[in-house]
Simulated assay, not measured.
Amino acid sequence: MAIRPARANIDPASHEPSIPDEGLVIRDEDWYGKELTDADRYTRYSFLDTDWTEVVNEGAVFDECTFAGVKFNASRHTGAAFTNCTFKRCTFFDTGFTDCKLVGSLFRQCTFTLFEVSGGDWSFVGLPGADLRRAGFDGVRMREVDLTAARLEKATVTGTDLSGAMLHGSNLTGADLRGSDLSSLDPLTVEFKGAMISLEQAATIATTLGWHVG
Rank of each mutant, 00 (worst) to 15 (best):
T173F: 01
T173L: 01
T156K: 11
K34L: 12
T98A: 09
R41N: 13
V125Y: 08
N73W: 06
F87Q: 06
K193V: 11
A175F: 06
A165F: 02
T78W: 01
G136V: 15
A135L: 07
S46Y: 07
A175K: 01
E22R: 08
V70L: 05
R133H: 11
V157L: 11
N73S: 11
T208G: 00
T207Q: 12
F82R: 04
E144I: 02
L106F: 08
C100F: 03
T50C: 15
E116L: 11
E64K: 12
M1N: 14
T189K: 12
A81I: 10
L172Q: 01
A2T: 13
C90R: 03
G214P: 09
N73D: 05
I197A: 02
I3H: 09
R151M: 14
H168W: 08
G164I: 02
S163A: 13
N84Y: 00
C65D: 15
L185T: 02
G104S: 06
T66D: 14
T98Q: 13
R133N: 14
R134C: 14
N171Y: 02
T204F: 00
T111Y: 06
Q109V: 07
D161E: 04
R178W: 07
R178H: 07
R41I: 12
T208W: 01
D28G: 06
A8N: 05
H15F: 15
S184D: 03
A149S: 14
T156H: 03
D176G: 05
G69W: 01
C65H: 10
E22N: 08
S118T: 14
T86F: 04
D63G: 09
G23K: 12
V61W: 11
E153G: 13
R27W: 04
E200P: 00
F137S: 06
G194Y: 13
D21S: 14
R27H: 07
T78Y: 03
V25K: 10
A68Q: 09
S170C: 10
K154E: 08
I3Q: 10
E16V: 11
R76Y: 08
A175E: 04
R151T: 11
L48S: 04
G159H: 12
S14K: 14
L185I: 09
T189V: 09
K71Q: 12
R44N: 15
T83Y: 01
G23F: 09
G214N: 09
F97D: 01
H168D: 14
I205M: 05
V56R: 15
L188N: 12
L172W: 13
R7W: 02
T86A: 06
L114E: 08
A165G: 11
V61I: 15
R89A: 10
R76P: 00
F87M: 08
Y45D: 09
A60R: 07
S198Y: 05
E22K: 06
S46F: 04
S184Q: 03
N57T: 09
G96S: 14
R133I: 04
L106H: 11
A195S: 15
E54F: 09
D181R: 06
E153M: 13
F107I: 06
A74I: 07
D146M: 07
C65W: 10
P12G: 06
E58C: 10
T50F: 04
R141G: 03
V56P: 00
T78Q: 10
T156W: 03
V70A: 02
V103K: 01
I197F: 04
E116K: 14
K193W: 13
F47L: 14
G59T: 11
